[in-house]
Design a protein around this nucleic acid. Structure first.
Lengths: 260, 260
DNA sequence: GGAATGTGTTCCGCTTAGTGGAACGGATGT
DNA sequence: ACATCCGTTCCACTAAGCGGAACACATTCC
């Protein structure tokens, strides 16, 4: 309970309403959002109307449901273009995919979650593929764990506080077990999980740091558990860590470099 | 001056700050945004901090600039997926591109602007290509004009009120001249412009209507002015109008159909 | 070098503007 | 037909945002 229980500001509420649409459910009603955020219906309604006016959300009058609108699409394209982590990490991801022959995946951290921002798919007939834009808690999966391990204790507490979704039968949801893993990851510099989020898929991930040594993203390879890639996990990990380090360097150069 | 001069609400301000990032400039400073919106620096600063907290915008501490963050990217993907206009219009666009051999372009309306949400590129060596997510005033170009022609007089007034950017030497910026065009478009059902936004490119567009007969998007073909496509403009227009009609039908079916 | 203007950030009193309950009307389903 | 859910509108209260001023830090221009 390190959680600072501030009374939520109006701006926070507005942002929260918008972020509701990033969740799994595509179309939402007023009461639905109000219940999920613990707000009054009138508040949500007023905020939604403003969003509709500027095109951020669109309104289906026949079903009385709200969903993301064209402006949100436009914003997303912009975010896609000037995403530092993506710009800095994609070359490294491409290189990683080329030398391993497997799918390389790039995630960016958003608070205590992460979101897939890029992938270079393996050329194999059977390959791992993720949905770009999907968000997952940091506590779940190798990508998130690799970042979480290098974050502050208070951040780790917060991230483990939220109940974890049971993606597969193998998903580890016990906070203490995850905490033990983080110690290992912190020591060796990379994370590894097997079939905890995507069945039959093993992934090895390493964090990407910004100029302040805060983890802002992660780079990983996803391989089928049954596939013999001709390398040990340790050998793969060395490649992933090297690629992530390269991405970190590119990111730090990018953030201190030219503007516009 | 039909403009209703309301004092801007907090929610509007929050949305405005976010929408600033959809504009051409990628990275913005606090004062920059404050000036552009006519707000106090402290207001903008507080709003931005909230956005950073939830990942909507990211902060470059070395340059002290703000840009769109991972959450905005996630939102954009969602918007991409459940964009009605896109879902309803892409099949028609694909068909249009196939039978004409030229690039088919799909736009969605957001207020008094429009944004490119999809395109099927021509297979030709030289072809028209647009930047998805880019926003353009309704008064500029065939896509926007085709929608504007079927909107209410007050909407047309508002759309013509904003000063038009001079994209090319041919761009028509005189409100009265545009108004005269709209009458023609309204009558024949399609719009056509030549080199007004993209040099050497001619485009023919027709509006897409929702269930309330309000134009929410447009479908167009973009051809090089110098290319002989083997059809008259009128023949092309018939194809475009038919495709747009098909898209309208699909959209209306979509909006009254199943939920989730 | 220093003056001058720019920036982002913090603070605080005033008052406006957002809040949330209740009430209304429409739609749905039992 | 009732009961229950929805979305929308209204209004008095007070909490929350506003914006000016003051701050520290950078940059630029004499």
């Amino acid at each position: 309970m390190t959680l600072t229980e501030r009374p939520p500001s109006t701006t926070e509420r507005v942002a929260q309403v918008l972020m509701c649409f990033a969740a799994d459910q595509q179309w939402l009603g007023v009461s639905d959002i109000a219940r999920r955020l613990g707000l009054g219906k009138s508040v949500v309604h007023r905020i939604l109307q403003t969003f509709v006016e500027c095109g951020l959300v669109s309104y289906n009058s026949t079903q009385r449901l709200y969903g993301l609108g064209p402006s949100a699409f436009a914003l997303g394209r912009r975010a896609h273009i000037n995403n530092d982590v993506r710009a800095a990490g994609m070359p490294a991801a491409a290189h990683l995919a080329a030398i391993t022959g497997e799918t390389a995946i790039l995630s960016a951290r958003m608070g205590h979650e992460r979101v897939y921002v890029g992938q270079i798919e393996s050329a194999q007939a059977i390959r791992i593929t993720v949905k770009l834009g999907q968000s997952v808690p940091l506590a779940a999966g190798a990508n998130g764990n690799s970042m979480l391990a290098f974050m502050s204790e208070s951040d780790i507490d917060l991230a483990l506080q939220v109940p974890l979704p049971q993606y597969t039968a193998n998903t580890v949801v016990d906070p203490e077990e995850i905490r033990a893993r983080l110690a290992v990851i912190r020591q060796r510099g990379w994370a590894s999980t097997s079939g905890e989020r995507i069945p039959m898929s093993m992934s090895i991930a390493a964090p990407i740091f910004d100029a302040s040594s805060v983890p802002v993203g992660a780079l990983s390879v996803g391989v089928l558990e049954t596939r013999d890639v001709g390398r040990s996990h340790e050998d793969l990990a060395v490649l992933v860590v090297a690629a992530a380090k390269q991405a970190s360097a590119a990111l730090q150069k990018l953030q201190t470099g030219a503007d516009s």
